[in-house]
Design a protein around this nucleic acid. Sequence first.
RNA 1: GGGGCUAUAGGGUAGCUUGGUCCAUCCUUUCAGGUUUGGGACCUGAAGACCCCGGUUCAAAUCCGGGUAGCCCCA
Length: 492
Amino acid sequence: MTKTDNKGITVKKAENFSEWYSQVIQKAKLADIRVGVQGFLVHRPWGFRIMRRVYEYLEEEFEKTEHEPMLFPIAVKEESLMKEEEHAGFSPEVFWVTHAGTRKLEERFALRPTGETQIYPVYSKWFRSYNELPFKAYQSRHTVFRNEMTTRPFLRGREFAFFESHNVFSTHKECLAQIDEDMDILNKVVKDKCKIPFFYFQRPQWDKFKGADNTFTPDTLMPDGKRNQLASTHDLGQNFSKAYDIQITDKKEKQQYAWQTCFGPGIWRIMAAIIGIHGDDNGLILPFDMAPKQIVLIPIFFKEKAEQNKVSKLLNKTKNDLTKKGYRVIIDDSENSPGFKFNHWELFGVPLRIEIGPRELKDNKATIVRRTSRDKTVINIKDLDKSIEKEAKKLDEDITKNAEKYFSDNVRDSNDFKDLKKIMNKNRGFVRVPFCSVDFDGEDCADTLKAETNGGNVCGTLFPKAEKVGPKEKCIICGKKAHHKVYVAKSY
RNA sequence: GGGGCUAUAGGGUAGCUUGGUCCAUCCUUUCAGGUUUGGGACCUGAAGACCCCGGUUCAAAUCCGGGUAGCCCCA
Protein backbone atom coordinates (compact mmCIF):
# COMPACT_ATOMS: atom_id res chain seq x y z
CA MET A 1 0.00 0.00 0.00
CA THR A 2 2.52 2.54 -1.04
CA LYS A 3 1.43 4.82 -3.80
CA THR A 4 -2.32 4.67 -3.96
CA ASP A 5 -5.13 7.13 -3.96
CA ASN A 6 -8.83 6.75 -3.60
CA LYS A 7 -9.61 6.38 -7.27
CA GLY A 8 -9.47 2.82 -8.34
CA ILE A 9 -6.49 0.58 -8.76
CA THR A 10 -3.47 2.51 -10.01
CA VAL A 11 -1.33 -0.40 -11.16
CA LYS A 12 -1.80 -3.22 -13.62
CA LYS A 13 -2.20 -6.65 -12.10
CA ALA A 14 0.12 -8.19 -14.64
CA GLU A 15 2.85 -5.62 -14.04
CA ASN A 16 2.90 -5.34 -10.28
CA PHE A 17 0.85 -8.01 -8.61
CA SER A 18 2.01 -7.23 -5.08
CA GLU A 19 0.90 -3.65 -5.26
CA TRP A 20 -2.29 -4.55 -7.09
CA TYR A 21 -3.16 -7.06 -4.38
CA SER A 22 -2.57 -4.56 -1.58
CA GLN A 23 -4.67 -1.97 -3.32
CA VAL A 24 -7.59 -4.30 -3.96
CA ILE A 25 -7.64 -5.35 -0.34
CA GLN A 26 -7.67 -1.77 0.80
CA LYS A 27 -9.89 -0.20 -1.83
CA ALA A 28 -12.49 -2.93 -2.13
CA LYS A 29 -12.68 -2.78 1.64
CA LEU A 30 -11.84 -6.42 2.19
CA ALA A 31 -9.57 -5.90 5.16
CA ASP A 32 -7.90 -3.17 7.14
CA ILE A 33 -4.35 -3.96 8.13
CA ARG A 34 -3.82 -0.78 10.13
CA VAL A 35 -4.34 -2.26 13.55
CA GLY A 36 -0.73 -1.82 14.54
CA VAL A 37 -0.02 -5.43 15.47
CA GLN A 38 1.89 -7.38 12.89
CA GLY A 39 0.02 -10.22 11.23
CA PHE A 40 -3.40 -9.22 12.60
CA LEU A 41 -6.08 -7.47 10.60
CA VAL A 42 -9.69 -6.38 10.54
CA HIS A 43 -12.04 -8.33 8.32
CA ARG A 44 -14.21 -5.61 6.88
CA PRO A 45 -17.85 -6.30 6.00
CA TRP A 46 -17.39 -6.74 2.26
CA GLY A 47 -14.46 -9.10 2.65
CA PHE A 48 -15.97 -10.84 5.63
CA ARG A 49 -19.14 -11.67 3.70
CA ILE A 50 -17.08 -13.21 0.91
CA MET A 51 -15.04 -15.18 3.41
CA ARG A 52 -18.18 -16.32 5.14
CA ARG A 53 -19.42 -17.80 1.88
CA VAL A 54 -16.33 -19.99 1.83
CA TYR A 55 -17.12 -21.10 5.36
CA GLU A 56 -20.74 -21.76 4.42
CA TYR A 57 -19.77 -23.87 1.41
CA LEU A 58 -17.38 -25.91 3.50
CA GLU A 59 -19.77 -26.39 6.37
CA GLU A 60 -22.46 -27.49 3.97
CA GLU A 61 -20.19 -30.15 2.50
CA PHE A 62 -18.94 -31.25 5.90
CA GLU A 63 -22.48 -31.68 7.13
CA LYS A 64 -23.38 -33.64 4.00
CA THR A 65 -20.51 -35.99 4.70
CA GLU A 66 -21.63 -36.46 8.29
CA HIS A 67 -19.10 -34.40 10.13
CA GLU A 68 -20.28 -32.93 13.44
CA PRO A 69 -19.59 -29.35 14.45
CA MET A 70 -17.68 -28.77 17.65
CA LEU A 71 -15.78 -25.96 19.31
CA PHE A 72 -12.73 -26.22 21.50
CA PRO A 73 -11.50 -23.44 23.75
CA ILE A 74 -8.76 -21.05 22.78
CA ALA A 75 -6.58 -22.00 25.76
CA VAL A 76 -4.27 -24.99 25.56
CA LYS A 77 -2.56 -26.54 28.54
CA GLU A 78 1.20 -26.49 28.27
CA GLU A 79 1.50 -30.22 28.91
CA SER A 80 -0.57 -31.04 25.81
CA LEU A 81 1.60 -28.94 23.61
CA MET A 82 4.77 -30.50 24.93
CA LYS A 83 3.47 -33.96 24.27
CA GLU A 84 3.09 -33.19 20.62
CA GLU A 85 6.47 -31.58 20.43
CA GLU A 86 8.13 -34.65 21.91
CA HIS A 87 6.27 -36.93 19.68
CA ALA A 88 6.12 -35.11 16.38
CA GLY A 89 8.74 -32.42 16.72
CA PHE A 90 6.03 -29.91 16.00
CA SER A 91 6.60 -26.73 17.93
CA PRO A 92 4.85 -23.74 16.53
CA GLU A 93 5.63 -20.33 17.94
CA VAL A 94 2.61 -20.19 20.15
CA PHE A 95 1.52 -17.14 22.09
CA TRP A 96 1.62 -17.71 25.82
CA VAL A 97 -0.78 -16.17 28.27
CA THR A 98 1.23 -15.49 31.40
CA HIS A 99 -0.66 -12.75 33.24
CA ALA A 100 -4.14 -11.75 34.26
CA GLY A 101 -3.91 -8.00 34.64
CA THR A 102 -0.79 -7.45 36.69
CA ARG A 103 -0.96 -10.80 38.41
CA LYS A 104 1.22 -13.60 37.12
CA LEU A 105 -0.70 -16.82 36.46
CA GLU A 106 0.10 -19.89 38.54
CA GLU A 107 0.32 -21.82 35.32
CA ARG A 108 0.71 -20.22 31.91
CA PHE A 109 -1.31 -21.48 28.97
CA ALA A 110 -1.00 -21.22 25.22
CA LEU A 111 -3.37 -19.75 22.68
CA ARG A 112 -4.13 -22.67 20.45
CA PRO A 113 -2.37 -22.98 17.14
CA THR A 114 -3.91 -25.91 15.20
CA GLY A 115 -6.18 -28.24 17.10
CA GLU A 116 -4.26 -31.49 17.47
CA THR A 117 -2.68 -30.70 20.79
CA GLN A 118 -5.86 -29.84 22.57
CA ILE A 119 -8.33 -32.05 20.77
CA TYR A 120 -6.53 -35.37 20.97
CA PRO A 121 -6.13 -35.46 24.76
CA VAL A 122 -9.89 -35.03 24.91
CA TYR A 123 -10.46 -37.62 22.20
CA SER A 124 -8.54 -40.10 24.32
CA LYS A 125 -11.24 -39.71 26.95
CA TRP A 126 -14.15 -39.91 24.53
CA PHE A 127 -13.70 -43.23 22.76
CA ARG A 128 -13.68 -46.70 24.27
CA SER A 129 -15.03 -48.94 21.56
CA TYR A 130 -14.93 -49.40 17.81
CA ASN A 131 -18.72 -49.00 18.03
CA GLU A 132 -18.24 -45.32 18.71
CA LEU A 133 -16.29 -44.87 15.51
CA PRO A 134 -16.01 -43.41 13.00
CA PHE A 135 -16.10 -40.04 14.65
CA LYS A 136 -15.93 -37.10 12.28
CA ALA A 137 -15.97 -33.56 13.59
CA TYR A 138 -14.94 -30.08 12.55
CA GLN A 139 -14.59 -26.61 13.92
CA SER A 140 -14.31 -23.31 12.15
CA ARG A 141 -12.75 -20.34 13.84
CA HIS A 142 -9.68 -18.16 13.89
CA THR A 143 -6.38 -19.43 15.08
CA VAL A 144 -3.21 -17.68 16.20
CA PHE A 145 0.48 -18.31 16.27
CA ARG A 146 3.54 -16.24 15.85
CA ASN A 147 4.62 -16.76 12.30
CA GLU A 148 8.11 -15.33 11.86
CA MET A 149 7.88 -15.04 8.11
CA THR A 150 6.72 -11.93 6.34
CA THR A 151 3.00 -11.55 6.88
CA ARG A 152 0.57 -10.77 4.08
CA PRO A 153 -3.16 -10.31 4.28
CA PHE A 154 -5.00 -13.59 3.56
CA LEU A 155 -1.75 -15.36 2.72
CA ARG A 156 0.19 -15.44 5.95
CA GLY A 157 -0.80 -13.99 9.28
CA ARG A 158 -0.39 -14.46 12.99
CA GLU A 159 -4.13 -14.73 13.32
CA PHE A 160 -6.08 -16.22 10.46
CA ALA A 161 -9.38 -17.78 9.55
CA PHE A 162 -9.18 -21.49 10.04
CA PHE A 163 -11.22 -24.60 9.62
CA GLU A 164 -10.24 -28.05 10.71
CA SER A 165 -11.68 -31.52 10.91
CA HIS A 166 -10.31 -34.23 13.14
CA ASN A 167 -11.57 -37.69 12.38
CA VAL A 168 -11.10 -40.96 14.20
CA PHE A 169 -11.47 -44.39 12.64
CA SER A 170 -10.92 -47.99 13.61
CA THR A 171 -9.10 -48.94 10.41
CA HIS A 172 -6.52 -47.40 8.14
CA LYS A 173 -8.67 -48.13 5.14
CA GLU A 174 -11.18 -45.63 6.42
CA CYS A 175 -8.43 -43.01 6.66
CA LEU A 176 -7.68 -43.44 2.99
CA ALA A 177 -11.35 -43.19 2.13
CA GLN A 178 -11.50 -40.02 4.18
CA ILE A 179 -8.63 -38.51 2.20
CA ASP A 180 -10.67 -39.15 -0.94
CA GLU A 181 -13.71 -37.57 0.64
CA ASP A 182 -11.69 -34.51 1.63
CA MET A 183 -10.48 -34.20 -1.91
CA ASP A 184 -14.04 -34.44 -3.15
CA ILE A 185 -15.08 -31.66 -0.78
CA LEU A 186 -12.26 -29.49 -2.08
CA ASN A 187 -13.37 -30.09 -5.63
CA LYS A 188 -16.90 -29.08 -4.80
CA VAL A 189 -16.00 -26.02 -2.79
CA VAL A 190 -12.78 -24.66 -4.22
CA LYS A 191 -13.11 -25.69 -7.86
CA ASP A 192 -16.86 -25.62 -8.44
CA LYS A 193 -17.99 -22.85 -6.13
CA CYS A 194 -14.95 -20.60 -5.87
CA LYS A 195 -13.77 -21.36 -9.43
CA ILE A 196 -10.18 -21.85 -8.34
CA PRO A 197 -8.23 -24.44 -10.33
CA PHE A 198 -5.64 -26.45 -8.43
CA PHE A 199 -3.48 -29.54 -8.45
CA TYR A 200 -3.94 -32.05 -5.70
CA PHE A 201 -0.54 -33.26 -4.59
CA GLN A 202 0.81 -35.95 -2.40
CA ARG A 203 3.65 -34.23 -0.60
CA PRO A 204 7.15 -35.66 -0.62
CA GLN A 205 8.03 -37.54 2.56
CA TRP A 206 10.40 -34.85 3.76
CA ASP A 207 7.80 -32.16 3.43
CA LYS A 208 4.76 -33.72 5.03
CA PHE A 209 3.13 -32.50 8.23
CA LYS A 210 5.28 -33.67 11.09
CA GLY A 211 3.51 -36.57 12.70
CA ALA A 212 1.57 -37.54 9.60
CA ASP A 213 2.11 -40.65 7.52
CA ASN A 214 1.19 -38.69 4.45
CA THR A 215 0.13 -35.18 3.55
CA PHE A 216 -2.02 -34.10 0.64
CA THR A 217 -2.51 -30.54 -0.54
CA PRO A 218 -4.46 -28.68 -3.19
CA ASP A 219 -2.13 -26.03 -4.60
CA THR A 220 -3.00 -23.23 -6.98
CA LEU A 221 -0.98 -20.48 -8.61
CA MET A 222 -1.19 -16.81 -7.79
CA PRO A 223 -0.79 -14.28 -10.64
CA ASP A 224 2.88 -13.78 -9.86
CA GLY A 225 3.44 -17.46 -10.53
CA LYS A 226 3.92 -18.44 -6.91
CA ARG A 227 2.20 -21.45 -5.41
CA ASN A 228 -0.62 -20.91 -2.96
CA GLN A 229 -1.31 -23.98 -0.83
CA LEU A 230 -5.05 -23.90 -0.21
CA ALA A 231 -5.49 -26.68 2.31
CA SER A 232 -3.93 -29.79 3.67
CA THR A 233 -5.21 -33.24 4.47
CA HIS A 234 -3.24 -35.60 6.59
CA ASP A 235 -3.26 -39.32 6.99
CA LEU A 236 -2.12 -39.38 10.62
CA GLY A 237 -2.02 -43.14 10.83
CA GLN A 238 -1.68 -44.10 14.50
CA ASN A 239 0.99 -41.56 15.30
CA PHE A 240 -1.14 -39.21 17.31
CA SER A 241 -3.33 -41.87 18.82
CA LYS A 242 -0.17 -43.40 20.23
CA ALA A 243 1.09 -40.04 21.51
CA TYR A 244 -2.21 -39.07 23.05
CA ASP A 245 -3.38 -42.56 23.93
CA ILE A 246 -6.51 -42.78 21.86
CA GLN A 247 -7.31 -46.47 22.27
CA ILE A 248 -10.38 -48.47 21.44
CA THR A 249 -11.50 -52.03 21.95
CA ASP A 250 -11.92 -53.72 18.59
CA LYS A 251 -14.26 -56.49 17.50
CA LYS A 252 -11.94 -59.13 18.81
CA GLU A 253 -11.92 -57.47 22.23
CA LYS A 254 -8.39 -56.33 21.71
CA GLN A 255 -7.14 -52.89 22.63
CA GLN A 256 -5.82 -51.01 19.63
CA TYR A 257 -4.82 -47.49 18.76
CA ALA A 258 -7.26 -45.55 16.65
CA TRP A 259 -6.55 -44.32 13.12
CA GLN A 260 -6.87 -40.64 12.39
CA THR A 261 -7.05 -38.02 9.71
CA CYS A 262 -7.15 -34.28 9.93
CA PHE A 263 -8.05 -31.78 7.29
CA GLY A 264 -7.51 -28.04 7.23
CA PRO A 265 -8.84 -25.95 4.39
CA GLY A 266 -7.14 -22.55 4.52
CA ILE A 267 -9.99 -20.10 4.42
CA TRP A 268 -7.59 -17.20 4.08
CA ARG A 269 -5.65 -18.92 1.35
CA ILE A 270 -8.84 -19.56 -0.59
CA MET A 271 -9.77 -15.88 -0.15
CA ALA A 272 -6.36 -14.83 -1.45
CA ALA A 273 -6.83 -17.06 -4.48
CA ILE A 274 -10.26 -15.61 -5.24
CA ILE A 275 -8.95 -12.07 -4.96
CA GLY A 276 -5.75 -12.66 -6.88
CA ILE A 277 -6.79 -15.08 -9.58
CA HIS A 278 -10.19 -13.68 -10.56
CA GLY A 279 -9.56 -9.96 -10.18
CA ASP A 280 -8.53 -7.64 -13.02
CA ASP A 281 -7.14 -4.14 -13.47
CA ASN A 282 -10.45 -2.65 -12.38
CA GLY A 283 -10.57 -4.56 -9.12
CA LEU A 284 -12.29 -7.55 -7.65
CA ILE A 285 -14.23 -10.15 -9.63
CA LEU A 286 -16.50 -12.55 -7.76
CA PRO A 287 -18.39 -15.68 -8.75
CA PHE A 288 -22.08 -14.85 -8.84
CA ASP A 289 -23.05 -16.86 -5.79
CA MET A 290 -20.18 -15.53 -3.68
CA ALA A 291 -20.82 -11.82 -4.11
CA PRO A 292 -22.19 -9.94 -1.09
CA LYS A 293 -24.26 -7.96 -3.59
CA GLN A 294 -24.94 -9.70 -6.89
CA ILE A 295 -26.70 -6.99 -8.81
CA VAL A 296 -26.36 -3.22 -8.61
CA LEU A 297 -29.10 -1.06 -10.07
CA ILE A 298 -27.96 2.31 -11.32
CA PRO A 299 -30.38 5.06 -12.27
CA ILE A 300 -29.35 7.54 -14.93
CA PHE A 301 -31.38 10.60 -14.11
CA PHE A 302 -33.34 13.05 -16.21
CA LYS A 303 -33.49 16.77 -15.90
CA GLU A 304 -37.22 16.61 -15.19
CA LYS A 305 -38.10 15.56 -11.68
CA ALA A 306 -41.22 13.69 -12.84
CA GLU A 307 -39.16 11.46 -15.10
CA GLN A 308 -36.62 10.92 -12.35
CA ASN A 309 -39.38 9.66 -10.13
CA LYS A 310 -40.42 7.20 -12.81
CA VAL A 311 -36.92 5.79 -12.94
CA SER A 312 -36.70 5.58 -9.15
CA LYS A 313 -40.04 3.82 -8.94
CA LEU A 314 -39.09 1.34 -11.60
CA LEU A 315 -35.79 0.58 -9.89
CA ASN A 316 -37.42 0.10 -6.52
CA LYS A 317 -39.94 -2.26 -8.02
CA THR A 318 -37.17 -4.13 -9.82
CA LYS A 319 -35.20 -4.40 -6.62
CA ASN A 320 -38.18 -5.79 -4.73
CA ASP A 321 -38.94 -8.30 -7.44
CA LEU A 322 -35.36 -9.50 -7.65
CA THR A 323 -34.96 -9.63 -3.88
CA LYS A 324 -38.05 -11.80 -3.65
CA LYS A 325 -36.45 -14.16 -6.13
CA GLY A 326 -33.48 -14.48 -3.78
CA TYR A 327 -30.98 -12.17 -5.44
CA ARG A 328 -28.89 -9.80 -3.37
CA VAL A 329 -29.55 -6.42 -4.91
CA ILE A 330 -28.51 -2.86 -4.21
CA ILE A 331 -29.68 0.42 -5.75
CA ASP A 332 -27.04 3.09 -6.02
CA ASP A 333 -29.06 6.28 -6.04
CA SER A 334 -26.28 8.34 -4.50
CA GLU A 335 -25.42 11.79 -5.83
CA ASN A 336 -22.36 10.52 -7.67
CA SER A 337 -22.15 10.53 -11.45
CA PRO A 338 -22.96 7.32 -13.32
CA GLY A 339 -19.34 6.88 -14.34
CA PHE A 340 -18.25 7.05 -10.75
CA LYS A 341 -20.75 4.37 -9.80
CA PHE A 342 -19.70 2.07 -12.63
CA ASN A 343 -16.11 2.20 -11.51
CA HIS A 344 -17.01 1.93 -7.85
CA TRP A 345 -19.05 -1.25 -8.12
CA GLU A 346 -16.62 -2.83 -10.54
CA LEU A 347 -13.88 -2.29 -7.97
CA PHE A 348 -16.00 -4.20 -5.47
CA GLY A 349 -16.62 -7.00 -7.93
CA VAL A 350 -20.40 -6.84 -8.11
CA PRO A 351 -21.19 -9.40 -10.83
CA LEU A 352 -24.03 -7.67 -12.68
CA ARG A 353 -25.03 -4.08 -13.22
CA ILE A 354 -28.34 -2.88 -14.53
CA GLU A 355 -28.65 0.68 -15.82
CA ILE A 356 -31.97 2.38 -16.36
CA GLY A 357 -32.25 5.92 -17.70
CA PRO A 358 -34.08 7.98 -20.30
CA ARG A 359 -33.12 5.70 -23.17
CA GLU A 360 -34.34 2.57 -21.45
CA LEU A 361 -37.46 4.02 -19.92
CA LYS A 362 -38.66 5.22 -23.31
CA ASP A 363 -39.12 1.72 -24.72
CA ASN A 364 -39.18 -0.47 -21.63
CA LYS A 365 -35.61 -1.58 -21.86
CA ALA A 366 -32.75 -2.03 -19.43
CA THR A 367 -29.02 -2.14 -19.95
CA ILE A 368 -27.25 -5.05 -18.34
CA VAL A 369 -23.48 -5.36 -17.89
CA ARG A 370 -21.51 -8.23 -16.48
CA ARG A 371 -18.35 -7.59 -14.52
CA THR A 372 -16.07 -9.81 -16.57
CA SER A 373 -16.60 -8.46 -20.10
CA ARG A 374 -18.03 -5.04 -19.12
CA ASP A 375 -19.99 -5.03 -22.39
CA LYS A 376 -23.37 -3.34 -22.35
CA THR A 377 -26.38 -5.32 -23.52
CA VAL A 378 -29.77 -3.70 -23.98
CA ILE A 379 -32.67 -5.98 -23.13
CA ASN A 380 -36.42 -5.76 -22.71
CA ILE A 381 -37.43 -5.26 -19.10
CA LYS A 382 -39.86 -8.11 -19.32
CA ASP A 383 -36.95 -10.42 -20.13
CA LEU A 384 -34.94 -9.20 -17.15
CA ASP A 385 -35.16 -12.43 -15.16
CA LYS A 386 -34.00 -14.54 -18.05
CA SER A 387 -31.20 -12.11 -18.87
CA ILE A 388 -29.95 -12.10 -15.31
CA GLU A 389 -29.85 -15.87 -15.26
CA LYS A 390 -28.06 -15.92 -18.58
CA GLU A 391 -25.54 -13.23 -17.67
CA ALA A 392 -24.85 -14.75 -14.27
CA LYS A 393 -24.12 -18.04 -15.93
CA LYS A 394 -21.88 -16.41 -18.51
CA LEU A 395 -20.06 -14.53 -15.78
CA ASP A 396 -19.26 -17.73 -13.94
CA GLU A 397 -18.14 -19.31 -17.20
CA ASP A 398 -15.90 -16.33 -17.93
CA ILE A 399 -14.36 -16.57 -14.49
CA THR A 400 -13.78 -20.29 -14.74
CA LYS A 401 -12.37 -20.03 -18.23
CA ASN A 402 -9.98 -17.22 -17.34
CA ALA A 403 -8.78 -18.97 -14.24
CA GLU A 404 -8.25 -22.26 -16.01
CA LYS A 405 -6.46 -20.62 -18.87
CA TYR A 406 -4.12 -18.79 -16.54
CA PHE A 407 -3.49 -21.98 -14.62
CA SER A 408 -2.78 -24.22 -17.60
CA ASP A 409 -0.67 -21.53 -19.28
CA ASN A 410 1.58 -21.65 -16.26
CA VAL A 411 2.22 -25.34 -16.10
CA ARG A 412 5.35 -26.23 -18.01
CA ASP A 413 7.50 -29.26 -18.58
CA SER A 414 11.20 -29.45 -18.24
CA ASN A 415 13.82 -32.16 -18.09
CA ASP A 416 16.85 -29.95 -18.07
CA PHE A 417 18.09 -28.24 -14.91
CA LYS A 418 19.31 -25.12 -16.71
CA ASP A 419 15.98 -24.80 -18.41
CA LEU A 420 14.18 -25.27 -15.10
CA LYS A 421 16.23 -22.55 -13.48
CA LYS A 422 15.39 -20.23 -16.32
CA ILE A 423 11.68 -20.90 -15.99
CA MET A 424 11.75 -20.49 -12.22
CA ASN A 425 13.39 -17.11 -12.53
CA LYS A 426 11.33 -15.82 -15.41
CA ASN A 427 7.84 -17.31 -15.59
CA ARG A 428 7.63 -19.26 -12.38
CA GLY A 429 4.40 -21.29 -12.21
CA PHE A 430 4.42 -25.07 -11.94
CA VAL A 431 7.13 -26.99 -13.70
CA ARG A 432 6.70 -30.71 -14.16
CA VAL A 433 10.02 -32.50 -13.97
CA PRO A 434 11.34 -36.05 -13.70
CA PHE A 435 12.65 -36.70 -10.21
CA CYS A 436 14.50 -39.50 -8.52
CA SER A 437 12.51 -40.05 -5.37
CA VAL A 438 9.76 -38.52 -3.25
CA ASP A 439 10.85 -40.73 -0.38
CA PHE A 440 13.37 -39.42 2.14
CA ASP A 441 16.28 -40.28 -0.20
CA GLY A 442 15.14 -37.59 -2.61
CA GLU A 443 15.50 -34.79 -0.09
CA ASP A 444 19.07 -33.92 -1.05
CA CYS A 445 18.03 -33.36 -4.64
CA ALA A 446 15.12 -31.23 -3.43
CA ASP A 447 17.50 -29.13 -1.34
CA THR A 448 19.80 -28.63 -4.31
CA LEU A 449 16.86 -27.72 -6.44
CA LYS A 450 15.63 -25.20 -3.90
CA ALA A 451 19.02 -23.59 -3.44
CA GLU A 452 19.74 -23.26 -7.14
CA THR A 453 16.34 -22.05 -8.22
CA ASN A 454 16.08 -19.43 -5.47
CA GLY A 455 13.37 -21.16 -3.51
CA GLY A 456 11.75 -23.65 -5.88
CA ASN A 457 9.95 -26.35 -3.94
CA VAL A 458 9.20 -29.91 -4.89
CA CYS A 459 5.45 -29.81 -4.31
CA GLY A 460 4.92 -33.51 -4.81
CA THR A 461 3.28 -35.93 -7.18
CA LEU A 462 -0.24 -35.66 -8.52
CA PHE A 463 -2.84 -37.44 -6.41
CA PRO A 464 -4.73 -39.72 -6.59
CA LYS A 465 -3.09 -40.72 -9.85
CA ALA A 466 0.61 -39.94 -10.14
CA GLU A 467 1.83 -39.44 -13.68
CA LYS A 468 3.89 -42.02 -15.45
CA VAL A 469 7.57 -41.53 -16.03
CA GLY A 470 9.23 -42.81 -19.14
CA PRO A 471 11.63 -45.73 -18.57
CA LYS A 472 14.60 -43.70 -19.74
CA GLU A 473 13.85 -40.47 -17.89
CA LYS A 474 16.49 -39.20 -15.51
CA CYS A 475 16.14 -37.13 -12.34
CA ILE A 476 16.54 -33.49 -13.29
CA ILE A 477 19.01 -32.98 -10.44
CA CYS A 478 21.10 -36.10 -9.88
CA GLY A 479 20.65 -37.77 -13.24
CA LYS A 480 19.78 -41.10 -11.71
CA LYS A 481 16.72 -42.99 -12.81
CA ALA A 482 13.55 -40.91 -12.35
CA HIS A 483 10.75 -42.65 -10.50
CA HIS A 484 8.33 -39.76 -10.39
CA LYS A 485 6.98 -36.76 -12.17
CA VAL A 486 6.98 -34.00 -9.60
CA TYR A 487 5.85 -30.39 -9.74
CA VAL A 488 8.19 -27.58 -8.80
CA ALA A 489 7.09 -24.10 -7.78
CA LYS A 490 8.06 -21.15 -5.65
CA SER A 491 5.75 -20.75 -2.73
CA TYR A 492 3.98 -18.24 -0.59
C1' G B 1 15.39 -16.49 9.54
C1' G B 2 18.89 -12.50 6.66
C1' G B 3 19.21 -7.68 4.04
C1' G B 4 17.29 -3.02 2.20
C1' C B 5 13.74 0.93 2.10
C1' U B 6 9.83 3.73 4.32
C1' A B 7 6.43 6.21 8.15
C1' U B 8 3.14 13.76 7.30
C1' A B 9 -5.31 14.29 7.61
C1' G B 10 -9.67 8.53 5.74
C1' G B 11 -6.35 7.70 0.91
C1' G B 12 -2.15 9.74 -2.11
C1' U B 13 1.64 13.45 -1.45
C1' A B 14 5.12 18.42 -0.90
C1' G B 15 8.46 20.00 2.76
C1' C B 16 13.57 16.73 5.43
C1' U B 17 19.75 17.22 2.02
C1' U B 18 21.28 22.81 4.67
C1' G B 19 16.68 22.70 11.93
C1' G B 20 13.62 28.73 12.22
C1' U B 21 10.08 31.15 6.33
C1' C B 22 5.37 25.40 8.57
C1' C B 23 -0.44 27.41 13.84
C1' A B 24 2.76 22.38 7.27
C1' U B 25 1.73 22.10 0.31
C1' C B 26 -1.32 20.13 -3.38
C1' C B 27 -4.86 16.30 -4.99
C1' U B 28 -8.51 13.21 -3.16
C1' U B 29 -12.00 12.39 0.84
C1' U B 30 -15.91 13.98 4.33
C1' C B 31 -19.76 17.73 5.56
C1' A B 32 -23.09 22.11 3.99
C1' G B 33 -25.19 24.75 -0.13
C1' G B 34 -25.70 25.36 -5.37
C1' U B 35 -25.40 23.05 -10.07
C1' U B 36 -25.05 18.44 -12.81
C1' U B 37 -25.89 13.15 -14.26
C1' G B 38 -24.93 7.41 -20.34
C1' G B 39 -17.44 5.61 -18.02
C1' G B 40 -14.28 8.50 -12.01
C1' A B 41 -18.56 16.47 -13.43
C1' C B 42 -18.21 21.62 -11.58
C1' C B 43 -18.51 26.07 -8.15
C1' U B 44 -18.44 28.20 -3.05
C1' G B 45 -17.50 27.36 2.05
C1' A B 46 -15.93 24.20 6.11
C1' A B 47 -13.36 19.82 8.49
C1' G B 48 -9.04 16.78 8.86
C1' A B 49 -2.05 15.07 9.69
C1' C B 50 3.98 15.49 11.18
C1' C B 51 3.90 6.83 14.08
C1' C B 52 5.55 6.24 19.57
C1' C B 53 9.40 7.08 23.47
C1' G B 54 13.86 9.42 24.51
C1' G B 55 18.08 12.69 23.10
C1' U B 56 20.65 17.11 20.76
C1' U B 57 19.21 22.42 20.39
C1' C B 58 17.30 28.93 22.03
C1' A B 59 14.35 26.20 18.28
C1' A B 60 12.80 19.53 15.55
C1' A B 61 8.08 17.18 10.54
C1' U B 62 13.40 18.01 9.50
C1' C B 63 19.31 15.71 13.08
C1' C B 64 20.59 11.25 16.54
C1' G B 65 19.18 6.59 19.42
C1' G B 66 15.51 3.01 20.54
C1' G B 67 10.63 0.95 19.74
C1' U B 68 6.49 -0.23 16.63
C1' A B 69 4.34 -0.88 11.93
C1' G B 70 4.39 -1.28 6.60
C1' C B 71 6.67 -2.45 1.87
C1' C B 72 10.42 -4.85 -1.23
C1' C B 73 14.36 -8.45 -2.12
C1' C B 74 16.65 -13.01 -0.47
C1' A B 75 16.52 -17.95 2.48
